[in-house]
Structure formats: C-alpha cells, structure tokens
Design a protein around this nucleic acid. Structure first.
Lengths: 214, 214
DNA sequence: ATGGCAGTGTAACTTTTGTTACTGCACAGC
DNA sequence: GCTGTGCAGTAACAAAAGTTACACTGCCAT
C-alpha cells in the first residue's frame, strides 16, 4: 500500500517534487479513491487536509444565490485546489464545491505538514505558489468567459474543455446538466446545440454529444 | 526620507509585519507616489518589483478582446496585488491593468528580497498567503457579479464600492466611464441610473452621482 | 404492449441588454 | 454674446437570453 502510494505520487508529481519530499508525502498522506459524481468538498465545509490530485479530474463549482451552479474550472493530475489551500491556511470555510468529473484518486495531506514543508522544501514552496498562480489564472479565464463571451461561445468552450479532461470527443451529459454548469436554461442549451449541429460542428444523440472535425 | 518611509510602512503594515521586517522594507524599497488616473501596470508588462500599497486606492482591470475593460476589484491600504506577485515569482507578463483610483503611494520591493523574506519572516509568509487568498476571494466575487447578477445590481454594487474606496458618497464619474468599467454601453448605464434616481436611491448631476439614504 | 418518464425539439412570447440616432443642456473659449 | 464640445436623456429598434408550454421519441418496468 505504502509502496503503491509512492508510485502514484511519483507518477503525478515526480517532475516537481524532490525524492525526499515524495517519500514524506507517501508516509503521512492517505489515499482517497473517488467515482464520477462524488461530492469531494461542499460549500461551507471546513477543510483539514490538503488534497493532491493523483489521477482523474475534478470540477470546481460556484453556487448561485437562489439556485444552480457555475463551473469555474477543472483540476487534473498534478493539480491541487488553491481554494482548498486557502481554507487550510486561513482556517475558513470552503467557498466552492468540488465534484469528481470522473473516477480517480487523491493524496490527502495533514495541514501541519504542508506548513512544515513550506520551510523545508523549496520544491514544495514553488508548487504552492505555482498552484495559486494557476488558480488565479483559471479564475481570470472564468471572468473572461462570463464578461466577454456570448452563450454560444461559452458553450463551445465548455464542450471542448469537457472533451479534454475526459480524453474523449463524446460528451455524456444531458442538456439539462450542461445548462446547470453554465448557469443557463435547458432550452437555451438545446437551441444552441441544435444550431451547432446544423453548422456541422457536433452530432447530437440521446444522452451524448459527439464533437466533429477538430 | 528613509524615516518618512518607515513611518508610512508602519501606518499601513504595522499590524502585520514585525519591527525588523518593516526596517528592512524601508531600507530596500523605493517610494512611488501616484495621482488619480496614473497607469501603474499595463497588460503584457514584466514586473520586476513588488508593490505594497501604502495610501490611496488602485483599480485592477481586465481587458476585453476587442475593446473595453472590466473592473475586477480595488486595492486599498495594506493590500498588494497577488497578480503582480504571480508575475514576479513566475517571471511572466502581467495579465491585468492597474490604474490609480485616487492619489496615493507605493513601496516597491525588489523581487529577490521578497523571496528571501519568505524563508526569513513568518509574518511575511503569512502576508503573502493572505494576499493570495484575498485576491482569489475578490475574483470569486467578480465571478458572482458577472454570473448571477443583472446589470442593475452590478451597477449598484459598483457605485457602493466606488463610494467606499473614495470615502465619499459623491461619485465623480461620467456615465461613459462607468459603462467602460462594467463592460456595457453608456446608454444602458444612463437608463439604469435614471431608474435609480426615480426610486430615490441616487441623485444625478452633471459629472457626478450622489448616493442617498445609505 | 402499454404506461410512464426522462430527454429532446421547437414555437411563441417576455425580459434584458445592446445599438443607433437624435435632442437639449452646461460650460469653456472665443 | 456666440459656438463648439462633452455629457446626459430618451425613443425606437435589434439581438440575446430566459420562460412557458407542448409535442415527440426512445426506453424501462410492469
């Protein structure tokens, strides 16, 4: 088990962490495996352990005041969630919801260790800063989408992102689910998708959408 | 000059930094004074020194692809720009524009010092993390505004924010300027402002808007 | 096979936002 | 005083997005 853990960490983080740090992580962290749709973090929760994503993908959502969500971005192998990081360090509640996009695994690290390593390992410090920067960058991207793009372009971006993180040109979602993550209505999504199909960009089936001519 | 510098820093950061660190900052940093409207950072620029805001307020803007901007948030006394921080550390170009909202002053710190202090001062490390967290939080707020609010609510928020950072219920901006920062058109802003006036929320004058009954 | 249901297609309408165009007003500079 | 210019008010229209309503179609369970 410990050995398998070390292997998993090396596969996702071998390029960023030094050998000694990987060993330490393997020692103190616990492995969490998850399935598609699992709710990993919810809004308002306290977070006591920092997650390092080993395999799979996670979607990060922001909640509407009345109802509905909004997809902010995806996390993939080698990512951590800076929002979570913020919560750990600041001892505050989570501002976002994290849901497994597909199955995968996490290494969970106790908060005290992550602070200790900040002093001890330069590679860890770099990683933490890089994570923050990536997340700020993703947030800027989310803002750009919302502020400067119309729904058709947002939807197209969404489909492409989804295809990328799932490594497949077939998107297994209902129009309702897509509408939910873009914070719009099912009718609008159906309408735009149908237009895309007429333009030859996609093929619509029941419960799935196929991206064409990439 | 050096003494004045130390005083200024103490006024803005006395509660967060230890004495020795404040002394070091005063030694190595240069003072920059700015006036309303000064462009402090532009998109695409490299940033070689980290700014600590001592007095005044700065607005942070994101640029539209074709034209126009969008106000992301304001910085005030005791803030630093995590975006800038990201650029310093990552040695990348600025993703945002920073413009003085009113007159004020900055302490500019060489990048190598800010890295050195990360190891040396716990209070500095805390400050850097807190800054990142604050900025992520502001970005979430910007996303909420864009995703979940209609223009009337966004405009009202804008007016209140503006009043807060300028410490005055009188907003000295043209409708055109407001439209620019909300990434909409002048006509829309005029329309909504007129409606607010009819509701008794504001009083419209030439070149300024007065917030009523707070 | 039949009934129920989730998922999708689509029409018709409303609301919100953006656009164009024109008017009038205040003030600065002559 | 006149005039140009920047700012604000408003109408009329267009585009985008949201809403309501209903029809159709596979598919599952009985």
């Amino acid at each position: 088990m410990e050995l398998k853990m070390e292997e998993l960490i090396k596969q996702a983080y071998g390029a960023v962490f030094e050998e000694a740090l990987i060993k330490e992580i393997a020692e103190v962290s616990t492995l969490v495996e998850f399935e598609e749709g699992d709710k990993l973090i919810d809004i308002g929760e306290y977070i006591r352990r920092m997650p390092l994503l080993l395999t799979g993908a996670i979607k990060i959502l922001r909640e509407d005041r009345d109802e509905g969500d909004l997809l902010l971005y995806f996390l993939e192998k080698g990512d951590t969630c800076a929002m979570t990081l913020a919560c750990c360090m600041g001892d505050t509640r989570s501002e976002i919801r994290a849901i497994a996009e597909n199955s995968g695994s996490l290494a969970m690290i106790p908060v005290n260790k992550m602070e200790e390593w900040l002093g001890k390992y330069k590679s860890w410090r770099n990683f933490v800063f890089t994570s923050y920067n990536k997340r700020l960058s993703e947030m800027l991207n989310a803002v750009d989408n919302l502020a400067f793009m119309k729904m058709d372009e947002r939807l197209l971006n969404y489909l492409n992102e989804k295809a990328k993180v799932n490594n497949s040109d077939i998107i297994n979602n209902t129009h309702q689910e897509i509408a939910y993550e873009l914070n719009t209505s099912r009718v609008v999504v159906s309408r735009l998708l149908k237009a895309f199909e007429n333009e030859g960009k996609i093929k619509l089936n029941r419960n799935n959408i196929v991206l064409l001519n990439k």
